[in-house]
């Protein structure tokens, strides 16, 4: 097994741990807030977030383009897809719910 594979597997385990921790938090929060009427009226996000959207689109295009020039860029996808799981886990912790309001 290559060092890249070992790295991705370790990162995958870490990402899974973050995800599971976040998932558990999110599930508890959802059950806690089941009867909280305030969570239905949690305010509105006024931003269309265009700068972030453009960045995400350009970044994805750039990564695919780079693959054609650098063999190592082939591993960007596997690395980032593991990061997706971790980021989803982090999203649970960034959810303020209604308790902070």
């Amino acid at each position: 097994m290559s060092s890249v594979s070992i790295t991705i597997i370790i990162l995958g385990l870490i990402a899974t741990a973050i995800f599971v921790a976040g998932f558990y938090r999110g599930l508890r929060q959802s059950i806690t807030e089941r009867d909280n009427v305030a969570s239905q009226e949690a305010g509105y996000d006024a931003s269309d977030r265009w700068p972030s959207v453009i960045f995400a689109v350009v970044a994805s295009a750039a990564i695919i383009t780079l693959i054609g020039f650098y063999p190592a860029a082939i591993y960007f996808g596997p690395f980032l897809v593991v990061l997706t799981a971790a980021a989803n886990g982090v999203a649970f912790f960034l959810d303020k719910g209604t308790s902070a309001r």
Partner: peptide, 18 residues
Amino acid sequence: NTLMITVPAGIIVVLIYD
């Protein structure tokens, strides 16, 4: 399922290249 799609997909791809 997002977890089940993402982490395995990353690992499978690098193992294929191995």
